[in-house]
Nucleic acid binder design. Structure first.
Lengths: 177, 177
DNA sequence: ACGGTTAGGAACCGATTGGTACAAAACACA
DNA sequence: TGTGTTTTGTACCAATCGGTTCCTAACCGT
């Protein structure tokens, strides 16, 4: 999964996948139909692990208000990009750009994950008292900023760029209610 | 340029480039050093044509207020994605995700284009009377939303998603001043 | 220890990759 | 028209691509 995440579908060669999995071709083609199916499995895994984790965090009242959770998420992303020099970005976001991948079957998964993420933001906003329609609209704006930040993070994000972006997310939330 | 824009660096095969350019290998390798240099040239071309056009539009007072221009830009993007089914997205945005491309030389160009785009937004906001610091911060938030919208547009953007995103950009602008 | 099943490894496959070498064709200038 | 130069098309290259085949090695319950 991490290899696809890092370098995309085409650039992830079969040899690279094999060494990353520490298996050889025999086992590979016993376990999977072809390269594409592994990619789809990687997407599913990302959905299960990362997206689920993010949505759970956004919906976890123990982490503070909805506002706190959303800003906390963005803070963690910026922190990872700045301090540990994380250049992976968001696999979902990368996959949406990567046209070579999945051949149609990927698109449904991508849209489903996008909806889950949007739902996570909306949930957090509703916890702060926003009504459904307004929460959805703001959530979508935040989602879009989220993807944008992940894109920027992939190409090297400066610290002040990150803080400015997060500041705007903050304003997007605080305006309402 | 359009081929790289559409399918990315790796997926754009030499044969595809040749037929797109309507030349053969002989002329190709006389005109360019290798595939990577063509990619960089395509990035430069995108900068010259598209980014320059966008920045010019954002700075053109004849197109209305800065607010009008920014919202006009987003409107045109959404319109293209929805009506004509444009799945190209933004070459700059795609290239930032596409890690295979450019090998270090691309990164400087990408950051330069990003700064130009940010400057375009900032200029439009300053025309509406925002001071420099505030304009920069808002511009960066808008830039991030811009990239996010382009990502969403690549994977099939619904009409209400687009209107909600643009609505949040509007709120981001209107809050200030 | 046995036979049957499954997993694993390595050789091999045609197709395609980006890139080179070179000759033929088009061109410019006189 | 003759000559020298540049452009263009083509044959070719090693390397790598994703994928198949097949044989061996490990493991299983009896």
């Amino acid at each position: 999964m991490v290899l696809f995440w890092d370098v995309g579908y085409e650039e992830a060669s079969l040899a690279g996948l094999l060494s990353a999995m520490e298996i050889t071709k025999g086992s590979f083609y016993k376990a999977f139909r072809d390269k594409q199916s592994v990619y789809l499995a990687a997407l599913d895994r990302y959905n299960d692990k990362v997206v689920s984790g993010t949505v759970a965090y956004l919906g976890d009242g123990a982490q503070g208000s909805g506002r706190d959770r959303i800003l906390g998420l963005f803070g963690r992303i910026a922190e990872a990009a700045l301090e540990t020099g994380d250049r992976l970005g968001c696999f979902l976001c990368n996959a949406m750009i990567d046209k070579a991948a999945g051949g149609g079957e990927a698109e449904a998964r991508l849209q489903a994950m996008t909806r889950r993420l949007e739902g996570g933001f909306r949930r957090a906003l509703e916890d702060d008292g926003l009504d459904e329609d307004e929460a959805r609209a703001v959530a979508r704006g935040i989602l879009s900023t989220y993807f944008g930040l992940r894109v920027l993070g992939r190409a090297g994000l400066s610290a002040d760029m990150a803080t400015d972006c997060i500041g705007q997310v903050e304003r997007l939330i605080d305006r309402v209610g």
